[in-house]
Write a protein that binds this DNA or RNA. Structure first.
Length: 588
RNA sequence: GUUUCUGUAGCUCAGUAGGAUAGAGCGUCCGCCUCCUAAGCGGAAGGCCAGCGGUUCGAAUCCGCUCAGGAACGCCA
């Protein structure tokens, strides 16, 4: 379905041409003076220079062409040269009718669906999820859902951190504690046990212990580096150990991501890229893309237009071990081979930006990706505490994600039982839904690239621009529709008609924007635009709700129109929050 | 040091392509439940858009400088 703006722009373009001006000036935008008009065109102001004519004259010429229109009810040229537009009511009503008849609510489906790999999550195995992982998961999940709604094929990959020194450290520590295990017996040739020699709880303790110990004891660290190297060279016992670490860790991670309603199509990790590395290194050397520098293998990525020095991308350390640049490139080799993506989006902490420019340039230079493959880096900002410093627990430690969710839900729960009389189980279940909405909405309503303040008090408050407000609006709609159906009426027969009041018209104008808002959020990889929209829509609805007695309305046609609006508003809100990654309860 | 991001109401944030009177929420103050969930709605106060200069008919937005804060800067990821 065409966007509402397309219809109007089309007409205005025609008018510009008929009046003798270039149609490039016919850009129509939402009005920023809603008291004066609904849409506006500022093209006459821009055109004034070129045509050496007063902008108001141009505007008047254009308006003169548009006195008859299917879409526009009022159009006016205003000093110094604005063109103010109000829409035809029947046109709005028809547009909404068409939206409700479409499964995708009139959202234009991609003509040529792209295959997009979304790389987000990126947790380390053997380490519990903490708040640092929250943003990547929330933002990435939302982008995935938005792109899918637009009709694209999205493959999400968690890209586990399961390679590198951390593995060596874990293995060395396990060896220190249980040297008798078969994994450490080089003479052993049999099968390795299926059961892991540790639980997730133990694993979570092993890594920090080892890491701390390595800082104090150089020979321990060297042993870990050796083990890392051996692992990378295919040491059987260590490989088996890695499999255990992965198993234990992944099943725990799955549980936690599920709680966030975050899912991945692929649970690949850095280790999966390993098989591609030797061949890739050979290719990079032979092609002359990489060279030795101070003993390390690097790819130069400096470009003439750079204002700063970009250090080369390091492929192999001087001891021959691979590092993150290596695995990232090798992962790209695999992705090209298996999925042939049109686009890859990395949702990663913005502090890694330099690494990603190095890595992207290397990939391009060495032709590891096709020229038309788009590589995008969405760097997100830090999640800070109320003090403006990186989020910590009360005693200054790293906050585990589990605990953050638990605390949020707890807070929401206590607010629910303050306000409503509900059963314990319902209150708990509702608290989980609101809690998730609170966290996600709190995060996504900020621009991803900026740092933001995570304030549980504010996010879980039941007032103002919060996730709970959106859910509450939905619950109100559901409640009315429920009662309407209880009266024996069917919502399916409801027909959207002309607006009878100002608040109804405002609501309808808000609904009509859905299409363009989602497209914009997709193109700019900006979920916060959906948050802003969903808030405006909820606002417009609540105002309408307040002024309109829907169930008491006696005029059948009016009531039918109201119900039609409610049903469509519900569908739009639900589609939006689905793209944000949460859902609404039946009651709250 | 170099590079880069950020600076908008007391606080947390929006601000669409350079356009009309810079918008929300929280907090403060004032109204509104005999009526579909008041977790709501209406209203008021609150701004030199960090500062200075430039481009333009017109700047929060573009350019330059200054100030303040954050971040990155080859063998960690």
């Amino acid at each position: 379905m065409k966007k509402i703006l397309d219809f109007i722009t089309m007409e205005i373009e025609q008018a510009f041409e008929q009046a003798g001006y270039a149609k490039e000036y016919a850009k129509v935008t939402l009005s920023d003076r809603p008291d004066l008009c609904e849409y506006q065109c500022n093209g006459a102001l821009a055109a004034a220079k070129v045509y050496r004519k007063a902008p108001i004259m141009i505007a008047k010429d254009v308006v003169g062409q548009l006195l008859q229109s299917k879409y526009i009810s009022e159009i006016e040229a205003v000093n110094p040269g604005f063109i103010n537009i109000k829409l035809e009511m029947d046109f709005i009503a028809d547009y909404l009718k068409n939206m409700s008849e479409d499964v995708s609510l009139g959202l234009e489906q991609a003509e040529h669906p792209r295959t997009i790999i979304m790389d987000y999550g990126g947790p380390n195995v053997a380490k519990p999820l903490h708040v640092g992982h929250l943003r990547s998961a929330i933002i990435g999940e939302s982008l995935k859902r938005i792109a899918r709604k637009m009709g694209h094929k999205v493959i999400s990959d968690i890209h586990l951190g399961d390679w590198g020194l951390q593995l060596g450290l874990i293995i060395v520590e396990v060896k220190k504690r249980n040297p008798e295990l078969v994994y450490f017996d080089d003479a052993y040739t049999g099968d390795y046990p299926k059961e892991a020699p540790f639980t997730i709880t133990e694993l979570e303790e092993i890594y920090p212990t080892a890491s701390a110990y390595a800082k104090e004891h150089i020979e321990y660290k060297e042993a870990a580096m050796q083990v890392t190297y051996d692992l990378q060279q295919g040491h059987k016992g260590y490989q088996a150990m890695l499999a255990h670490i992965l198993n234990v860790s992944v099943s725990d991670l799955k549980k936690n991501y599920e709680r966030l309603h975050v899912t991945f199509d692929l649970w690949k990790g850095e280790s999966d890229a390993q098989p591609y590395i030797p061949e890739m290194i050979a290719y990079l050397k032979e092609g002359g893309y990489a060279h030795l520098d101070q003993g390390a293998l690097v790819i130069d990525v400096q470009e003439d237009t750079d204002t700063k020095e970009i250090p080369p991308c390091m492929i192999l350390k001087s001891d021959g071990a691979s590092l993150y640049g290596t695995t990232d490139l090798a992962t790209l080799v695999e992705r090209e081979k298996l999925y042939h993506p049109d686009e890859i989006i990395y949702v990663v902490d913005k502090r890694q930006e330099l690494h990603f420019t190095q890595f992207f340039r290397s990939a391009r230079k060495a032709k590891i990706v096709r020229e038309e493959t788009k590589l995008r880096f969405l760097g997100f900002g830090t999640m800070n505490g109320k003090d403006g410093k990186p989020f910590k627990t009360r005693d200054g430690g790293v906050m585990r994600l589990e605990n953050l969710i638990k605390e949020t839900n707890e807070m929401v729960y206590s607010r629910i039982i303050e306000n409503r009389e509900v059963s314990e189980t319902e209150a708990r279940r509702t608290a989980e839904m609101i809690g998730l909405a609170a966290i996600k909405y709190g995060d996504l309503s900020n621009q991803a690239s900026k740092d933001y303040v995570f304030d549980v008090e504010r996010f879980t408050s039941f007032e103002g621009n919060t996730g709970a407000y959106i859910l509450y609006t939905l619950v109100r709609i559901k409640s009315i529709l429920h009662k309407y159906i209880e009266k024996g009426k069917s919502t399916k027969e409801a027909k959207i008609g002309r607006a009878h009041t100002e608040s109804q018209r405002i609501l309808m104008l808000e609904m009509v924007k859905y299409n363009e808002v989602i497209l914009e959020a997709y193109e700019e990889i900006a979920p916060h635009k959906i948050c802003a929209y969903v808030y405006d829509l909820a606002n417009a609805f609540n105002r309408f709700y307040h002024e309109t007695k829907i169930l008491l309305e006696e005029n059948e046609e009016k009531q039918s129109g109201y119900i039609g609006l409610l049903v469509l508003t519900q569908r739009i809100l639900e589609a939006c929050i689905d793209m944000l990654g949460f859902e609404a309860p039946e009651r709250m």
